[in-house]
Design a binder for these strands. Structure first.
Lengths: 111, 111
DNA sequence: CATGGCTAGATCGTATGACAATCTAGTCAG
DNA sequence: CTGACTAGATTGTCATACGATCTAGCCATG
């Protein structure tokens, strides 16, 4: 439990969903997202991973972007879930819960 | 149920574990593994995915390989879990169960 | 006997995407 | 002025999943 870094291959798939999950809590920005991911046990996600991912979300119309002047720091690019993003999040969330259950069963069942 | 295979990004991470799971039932060969994966709801895994994966397992010393003459067909390359493979499987299995629980909690908890 | 279909394994080229390293730029403390 | 921290972004590299394709053995049909 202590170190709790999951294999990166597992995180890769979940990362988009995890980001959607965080965005579902309300507007945030990249830097904060990376900290929340780390706090949530997803390890430290690097800029080279996170920013392209956010760009993909933006590109897919799942998030809306606003620039805000930073308080005590540089400007922030803030992200909110678009309606399509909310929908996509619910869909993926439900699907992941089903997937987790499915794989759990698969691993537990004898043959 | 049947048609909707999971997003490939999710399968990617789980695929190795799923193969280990199947190998844990005893000796099999590639072609049969791909059928069992499909039957288990992992979609149809192509040769270009499965054989390199099996080669990686072999390379890592997690499986042992035997050639057997095919009954009514070409020869088969049969795989068994090595002791190290058994250990690795238990480890990954436990870790995945924990991971599934962790992500489930993460998705369910409000903020 | 020739053809096509099934089993079985393997390889190649392409595309995706995660990561480390690096860069710019703003603020603040010393 | 310098260094630390926040914040976003880019670049190059590496791993790997996939589709397509190939070889090869066996069988049934025509």
């Amino acid at each position: 439990m202590s170190d709790s870094s999951w294999p990166t291959e597992w995180l890769r798939g979940t990362l988009t969903l995890a980001v959607l999950r965080i965005l579902a809590d309300g507007e945030t920005y990249g830097y904060a997202i990376s900290h929340r991911l780390e706090a949530a046990g997803f390890g430290s996600i690097k800029g080279g991973t996170l920013y392209p991912l956010l760009a993909r979300l933006e590109n897919a119309g799942l998030v809306e972007v606003t620039w805000r002047a930073g308080e005590g720091g540089p400007g922030r690019k803030c992200f909110t879930l678009s309606p399509a993003g909310c929908e996509e999040y619910s869909r993926q969330r439900a699907q992941w819960l089903a997937f987790a259950e499915h794989t759990t069963d698969f691993l537990k069942d004898p043959s």
